[in-house]
Amino acid sequence: MINIVLFGKPGAGKGTQAEFLKEKYNLTHLSTGDIFRFNIKNETELGQLAKTFMDKGDLVPDDVTIKMLQSEVEKNPQSKGFLFDGFPRTLSQAEALDAFLESKNEKITATVALEASDEILVQRLLERGKTSGRPDDQDEEKIRNRYQEYNEKTAPLMQYYKAQDKFHAVDGIGSIAEITHRLSSVIDSL
Rank of each mutant, 00 (worst) to 15 (best):
M1G: 12
I2Y: 14
F7Q: 00
G8R: 05
P10E: 02
G15P: 03
G15Q: 06
T16W: 02
F20L: 09
K22Q: 13
T32E: 00
D34L: 03
I35A: 04
F38I: 02
F38W: 05
N39A: 09
N39F: 04
I40A: 02
N42M: 03
E45H: 07
L46Y: 07
L46R: 10
G47M: 05
G47K: 10
M54D: 00
K56W: 08
G57M: 07
D58F: 03
P61W: 05
I66C: 10
K67H: 03
L69S: 03
E74R: 13
K75H: 08
N76W: 04
P77R: 06
Q78T: 14
K80A: 10
K80Y: 06
G81T: 08
L83Y: 00
F84Q: 06
F87I: 02
F87W: 09
P88G: 04
A96V: 02
L97D: 00
A99I: 01
L101A: 06
S103F: 14
N105M: 08
K107L: 12
I108C: 11
I108P: 13
A113F: 06
L114S: 09
E115N: 09
A116H: 08
D118Q: 04
D118L: 01
V122Y: 15
Q123M: 07
R124T: 00
L126V: 11
G129T: 15
G129D: 14
R134Q: 14
D137N: 04
D137G: 01
Q138Y: 04
E140A: 13
E140Q: 14
E141F: 05
K142D: 00
K142M: 06
I143H: 05
I143S: 11
R144H: 07
Y147D: 09
Q148K: 12
T154C: 08
T154N: 07
A155I: 04
P156T: 13
Y160D: 14
Y161G: 11
Y161W: 14
Y161C: 11
Y161A: 03
A163L: 07
Q164M: 12
D165K: 07
F167Y: 13
H168V: 01
H168C: 04
H168N: 14
A169Q: 12
D171M: 13
D171G: 11
I176S: 01
A177L: 08
E178C: 09
E178M: 15
H181W: 01
H181G: 03
L183K: 05
S185W: 03
S185E: 13
L190C: 12
